[in-house]
Design a protein around this nucleic acid. Structure first.
Lengths: 225, 225
DNA sequence: ACAAATTGTTATCTAATTGTTAAGTGTGTT
DNA sequence: AACACACTTAACAATTAGATAACAATTTGT
């Protein structure tokens, strides 16, 4: 089974870290840990977690401060931040939400509550994430109807061609390596020979016109801006 | 402006009732109140609120019990139930979700949180609420009479065929995956083989004509615009 | 209980999609 | 100019998805 998502857990108490980590892994999440805000930031940068679970009270850099920094970084505007607050520090709720946290969970943590809440939050996130349509130059790509328009003209692409074009068009100008493309369009189980991508690119060019997809020799393909 | 929706608030403390009621009315909702579950049920029956805000801890009939009764009543399968839980009673969160609640809000209540959450929930609901009849191209589908017209011509579809066509026609152009269709038309308990859908599609095409339902290979079916 | 209609399953067929191979083309390098 | 490299292109092969028909099971009406 594919992972449900990546979660970074930040707490200074090793046993709590262990406890949360265990429960989330059991549920199917990929879990990273850090024991304070200062440690957490570079890990977050690297691992791009879907959600960060942040203890409010920590030495070195507390949760509020960490949250503020995360929320200020555009790399993380897709990342949810959830606070762990001790029952007694109710005020943190306010401060935390001010700092940009998306939710909070009160200690002591009950595994079922934790997992239920995080599932709910991440489900919401996944739903919000997929942008349904893209417009670049005179090309309009709609995931909902699986249709592509060049201006007024409707263009019919096969499934793989569609996914491939959609990927390239999702970041116009960015070069995608073949490795990149294989991972995103084919998924990592299936193994397909490199030339296959070239052939699909060719088919798309045939149907769309040559001017939209550029080749960067030795690197990969991109949607020309 | 038309009312945003009807909300029934149930809580045994008069001042909380007053406080919530005030804030929701200010936002533009039509608000009814009750001070326990027993009172709430007949009011709910009569007023058909879009959402019921339910305190968990109440004398006479508590929120969990009330929620269960509401959810068991088919009159209310369009009604959302949101729990108000005191911070200290975390367990209720889970019990509440088990009882069929759609969401919960922790006390102490902050007006902004309350209003934001309810807005979000009701927006979702309005979107989901299917209009009783649909007209696309020359097809008219009426949920009330379970009849379909192509122009003047009356067309008789079997129940499943009707539901399937209704689903597709509810978002013309959008491609529904088989998974999608199974979930919406069959419901997730029933397990039916994929090909069954194909066969139903074929029946609909036979009766309606081939031009209305399109196949997107590798994805699913859609109502052609 | 029976007949009729609806709903679901399965097997076969067809066509489109997807993947592979190999020859071709162009560009840059020595 | 000869060569290597990387992509293009065409032809073809393999695979897969969906259409369709025939039939089985289930439900509904009488």
């Amino acid at each position: 089974m594919d992972t449900l998502g990546k979660i970074l857990v930040v707490d200074d108490e090793a046993d709590i870290l262990e406890f949360i980590s265990y429960n989330l892994k059991k549920e199917g999440y990929e879990v990273f840990t850090a024991s304070n805000g200062k440690e957490a930031l570079p890990i977050a940068k690297k691992m791009k977690p879907d959600l960060i679970l942040l203890d409010v009270m920590m030495p070195v850099m507390d949760g509020i401060e960490t949250c503020k920094r995360i929320k200020a970084d555009s790399d993380f505007n897709q990342t949810y931040v959830v606070f762990l607050t001790a029952r007694s520090e109710d005020y943190s709720e306010i401060e935390g939400l001010d700092a940009g946290a998306d939710d909070y969970i009160a200690k002591p943590i009950k595994p079922k509550v934790l997992v239920t809440r995080l599932n709910a939050i991440l489900r919401r996130k996944i739903k919000e994430a997929a942008s349904p349509s893209i417009k670049v130059k005179d090309i309009f790509i709609d995931r909902e109807s699986f249709l592509i328009y060049r201006g007024e003209q409707k263009i019919q692409l096969a499934r793989k061609e569609f996914e491939l074009l959609f990927l390239l068009a999702s970041k116009p100008g960015k070069v995608f390596t073949r490795e990149n493309i294989l991972e995103k369009v084919w998924g990592d189980e299936v193994l397909v020979v490199d030339r296959t991508i070239d052939v699909h690119i060719r088919k798309i060019r045939e149907k769309l016109g040559d001017e939209y997809i550029g080749t960067v020799k030795g690197v990969g393909y991109k949607f020309e801006i």
